[in-house]
Write a protein that binds this DNA or RNA. Structure first.
Length: 102
DNA sequence: CTCTTGACCATGT
DNA sequence: AACATGGCCAAGA
């Protein structure tokens, strides 16, 4: 299986109202680095099934120019799911960080 | 095939 | 917290 498929599989598991980070995902999949996670989502083959808006960087900061047409759209969806923002571009990782259980 | 770039991260400033 | 640097590895030119 390609590394992308593994990444997608994990991202799809992120429950509603939670967010995860590229680093966490990369740690949980052996042989995959944070960059590869980002690249996998960049080449996102099925955005309708892959909740990439629930993935943020280590600081909780969202991707400003990618994710579904803009960080505002991403933020709108997250807020709609109950994820809190500490400022316009940073989600509250302390309360909503999620980790895949191996 | 080589070179550059990049949805990142850790560390230092 | 924000910015800069080095490292990681894959995809694009």
């Amino acid at each position: 299986m390609d590394y992308k498929q593994r990444v997608y599989r994990v991202v799809k598991k992120i429950p509603k109202g939670k967010v995860s980070t590229y680093g966490s995902i990369s740690k949980y999949i052996k042989g995959v680095t944070p960059r590869m996670v980002g690249r996998a989502l960049h080449t996102n083959p099925d955005p309708a099934s892959i909740p990439c808006h629930r993935v943020v960087d280590r600081d909780g900061k969202v991707a400003e120019h990618f994710a579904f047409g803009g960080w505002r759209e991403q933020r709108r969806r997250l807020i709609n799911e109950g994820v809190g923002f500490i400022d316009p571009t940073h989600v509250d990782l302390g309360k909503h960080s999620w980790q895949s259980k191996k």
